[in-house]
């Protein structure tokens, strides 16, 4: 089997397992390339009609292109879109301009999701994280329980073997499901190219710069690049030795910031 077919097939299997076991699930869509590829896989898994809501956690500091892309495709693909915002924290003035990035990420992203999960009662959340993104993510399971405080007990994860996943979640917990764990950055782009999946313009070079990883406008730095179309993006990635998230502030502030964010329930 060709690599992309194998990855696609396994991801679809995992998505269908999550839906079978939990029914009350939602998929996190950051509108970036990975979660858009995951959304595409969900559409394929359910023959075009996704039977669960698609969640966008909106910090209010996303790029304008993110909002227009979201609205265009959620109507075109007939998505049941849910938007999660931590209004209380926003009113309290928590924002990326106040020097505490850890707090901003955990309030405007993690706690926004926490509130939405409490309100909607989701049993499981599908996420487009990949093992090769960051060292800490190399330790993830396909089905990974989080407690009511969202904490990830990475020392004591349930065993996972032979496509048998943790299929029950206790009260006040939810399961994070990671169908893209085996994919790498290049696989995602190769797949986007093969399937002709739309992606936001920020990934294309403009005036010698493009974004390689996208989050909040305030905390992302573009990289030097002349890659204006998907084939040149792929060629560029084949040649690079820099990490994908190098432009993301939350990974750089201090050693282990990503680990701390993950343990607090960050996506």
């Amino acid at each position: 089997m060709e690599r992309l077919d194998e990855l696609e097939s396994k991801s679809i299997y995992i998505i269908r397992e999550a839906y079978y076991h939990f029914k009350d699930i939602g998929m996190l869509w950051s509108i970036g390339k990975d979660s858009t590829a995951l959304l595409w896989l969900c559409r394929k898994a359910f023959f075009g009609r996704i039977p669960f809501p698609i969640i966008h956690i909106d910090t209010g500091y996303k790029f304008p292109q993110i909002y227009s892309f979201r609205d265009k495709y959620s109507s075109e693909w007939e998505l049941n879109l849910k938007i999660g915002r931590n209004e209380d924290a926003i009113l309290e003035g928590i924002c990326p301009h106040n020097n505490d990035k850890l707090k901003c990420c955990s309030e405007l992203k993690t706690n926004a999701l926490k509130k939405l999960i409490d309100k909607e009662g989701y049993m499981a959340i599908l996420l487009g994280i990949r093992r090769d993104e960051h060292g800490i993510r190399a330790k993830e399971r396909y089905f990974s329980p989080r407690d009511s405080q969202f904490a990830w007990d990475y020392k004591n994860q349930p065993p996972e073997l032979w496509d048998q996943y943790k299929s029950e979640s206790e009260d006040s917990t939810h399961i994070r499901v990671h169908p893209l764990l085996d994919w790498n950055e290049l696989d995602i782009w190769n797949y986007i190219e093969r399937e002709d999946i739309p992606f936001i313009e920020l990934y294309r070079a403009l005036d010698g710069k493009r974004y390689r990883s996208i989050g909040c406008q305030t905390c992302c730095e573009p990289i030097d690049s002349d890659a204006k179309d998907i084939n040149s993006i792929i060629a560029e990635l084949q040649a690079t030795k820099t990490q994908e998230r190098a432009g993301r502030t939350q990974d750089k502030e201090e050693a282990y910031m990503m680990q701390k964010l993950r343990a607090l329930g960050y996506m």
Binding site: G135, I136, A138, K139, Y154, K155, Q157, N184, A255, Q259
Partner: peptide, 19 residues
């Protein structure tokens, strides 16, 4: 060894993958 604790304790706790 990606986890802070693993580096401190100098041992691997969970499965990790690299390529």
């Amino acid at each position: 060894d990606h986890l802070e604790e693993e580096r401190m304790e100098k041992m691997t706790i969970d499965t990790a993958q690299s390529f």
